[in-house]
Design a protein around this nucleic acid. Structure first.
Lengths: 192, 192
DNA sequence: TCGCCATAGGTACGATCGTACACATCGCGG
DNA sequence: CCGCGATGTGTACGATCGTACCTATGGCGA
């Protein structure tokens, strides 16, 4: 009858779980909380609840809130940069590369606009604190490097800015993106 | 000897000041606090201290934190939109209009990058809450209208996105902007 | 001139937060 | 097989916050 779950613990005291990658789970839960309630609404207690770990685990695994946020956003930028890279990679000629850029601007990278919220939260931190700016700089360098494998440096920079701006407009605008306009914009940017 | 300051109040009880535009001063102080400590670090107490008013004035003049932030960012977007408009207005032909756009991208609108921090804070709120999105939408409409007095609609939209993206890159990048690149980008955007 | 009420000012309350800390548990090296 | 240190857990403390609320003041209409 008994489930073969671990070394048959008798219920002596509170449940203690063997949880090798608890740190990773906390980081993932932290990003969920940030996406839902913002950095301002992110607390040790809420992250702990989301990750299903006791409050004490927070101070054990992370020196403080700052370290937790730093690691969470590090994981976030890594994921997004990898997705960006993967989406651009298949393009062989410049035309397909342009199509890939258009798709990047018009589509979500990760689910329902979650990454847009997280991006703004990160930018807000980066606008004020040096340590986060290093994170965003690394991210920007990665994006630009990915673009420069398909376009010349000047065009890559302009496309990078265009992606940034149009993505923000997509996030903040109530009307959906006009795909034809995006195509037009990308073509102009490439027509140097 | 006595300073001729007001109606010669005797020091009966705590100082009470006649302060007709206290509301406005609180809003201005609120923006200062946000610029310095972020929305997350903005509290009634800190704003009250910055505006040099007692804590009780906060709840008297504003129904709550949300109303205060809403009004503060309303004042902010109004100011920035007006500055944008004023900087674009003098342009008569398209060439001078393009020069104005380049200047807008490369220069600060209001002092030492203060508006960049505030902009990110606002975007972060707007990415999550509808009420702030109305604010950013109105702002975007105003910017686009200002651009459309000098460019055709499609170009105006692209320029708008370009301004957005390049401004963000200026805020987050450690290296200063290359003005030649900005000129190039604006020219490509106008070359539809 | 007088009294009313919009405005100003001080303080207390309950909630929430970050963090510290004492204790429990058990994988694993010796 | 043992014990010790890495890891997990529960709780308490002091700080800060938003807000409510009561009192005091004085500009201004009657």
């Amino acid at each position: 009858m008994s489930e073969a779950a671990g070394p048959a613990r008798v219920d002596r005291g509170p449940a203690r779980r063997y949880d090798p990658d608890r740190r990773q789970r906390i980081i993932a839960a932290c990003l969920d909380v940030i996406a839902e309630r913002g950095v301002a609404g992110t607390s040790h207690r809420r992250v702990a609840a989301a990750a299903d770990v006791p409050l004490g685990s927070m101070t054990y695994h992370f020196a403080g809130m700052a370290e937790l946020l730093q690691e969470a956003f590090g994981a976030f930028t890594g994921t997004v940069a990898a997705t960006f890279e993967r989406r651009m990679a298949p393009a062989t000629d410049e035309e397909s590369a342009r199509a890939a850029v258009v798709a990047l601007i018009c589509d979500d990278l990760l689910g329902v606009d979650r990454e847009l919220v997280l991006t703004h939260e990160l930018y807000t931190l980066a606008a004020r604190e040096e340590s986060y700016r290093e994170l965003t700089n690394a991210w920007m360098r990665a994006s630009r490097a990915a673009l420069e494998r398909h376009f010349d440096p000047a065009t890559a920079r302009i496309l990078d800015a265009l992606i940034e701006g149009l993505t923000i407009h997509r996030a903040l605008d109530t009307v959906p993106h006009d795909r034809a306009l995006v195509v037009d914009a990308v073509e102009r940017a490439c027509a140097g």
